[in-house]
Design a protein around this nucleic acid. Structure first.
Lengths: 138, 138
DNA sequence: AAAGTTATGCAAAATATTTGCATAAAAGTT
DNA sequence: AACTTTTATGCAAATATTTTGCATAACTTT
């Protein structure tokens, strides 16, 4: 699946270097053997939930320390999970909020004490799910 | 979407009369303005989970509102997950049943309150796992 | 064993998704 | 404010996926 390959490469590229424009990204992709135009890359970035921060494309940052509503971190795991860490005892309440939001990316959630496993339908949904979940708790 | 229309009509037809063959079904469908061959109907019936009971096509006593044992939905997520949603509080009990069934497709389960994450060994096992899990609760 | 019924491989047809082109819109710079 | 650069998006072509019918294998009933 070319699209998924390309999106994973995009994530890897922006993690490894400072990239400020979509044309730069397409050039890097081409060097990696992946041909795509700026328009496809634009759509990918939206789908991946990538943001531009201080002039560079980056993944949304996990706020450090005191977090919104006790949510501490959100990370992708495997190809279909997003794992949320929160203050002890808050997982259930946060999971209920996430369920209530009925995000199209989210298939289901399971809460422990300070951890929630959130299933998304596909790998490429992980990042946008993460972005949207942060937004729930702003 | 013709396929969904046709499947809904099939359900309505088998609810309203005794139908014993797929050719009979195609004839009824045609009378209702829906053209399809026996092979499409065969595939529809499988997809709809319709069974043949005492010589007639019928629906298994299944989820619709008051679902079998509280199981509401089953969906694939990523390559290796099937996510079950159920009535609140029932996840653990349902997960025990699923585990007890020892389906070859199912590697393991984790239950929350109204959600179960079911790990399957491979993506191509998801669909048959879903079908078999429904069958457990008939 | 023959007849009737259902399931399925294969490829064509239909439908859905993705993509590039062109350019509008937005953002950045001077 | 004007100009330049960057990003987003409408549209249709390209590509991918799903659905379908045909033919027939497989299964069931008589």
């Amino acid at each position: 699946m070319l699209k998924e390959t390309r999106q994973q490469k995009i994530l890897s590229l922006i993690r490894g270097r400072r990239i400020g424009t979509q044309e730069e990204l397409t050039a890097h992709l081409e060097r990696a053997g992946i041909v795509a135009t700026q328009s496809s890359v634009s759509r990918d970035l939206i789908e991946l939930g990538v943001v531009k921060q201080r002039g560079a494309y980056t993944l949304p940052q996990t706020p450090s320390g005191a977090s919104a509503h006790g949510l501490l971190s959100l990370d992708a795991a495997g190809d279909a999970l997003v794992v949320a860490r929160c203050e002890p005892g808050l997982a259930s309440a946060l999971a209920v909020e996430i369920d209530r939001a009925a995000l199209p990316e989210v298939v289901g959630t399971i809460a422990g004490d300070d951890t929630i496993f959130i299933a998304v339908s596909e790998r490429r949904m992980q990042r946008s799910a993460i972005k949207k979940i942060w937004e729930i708790f702003q």
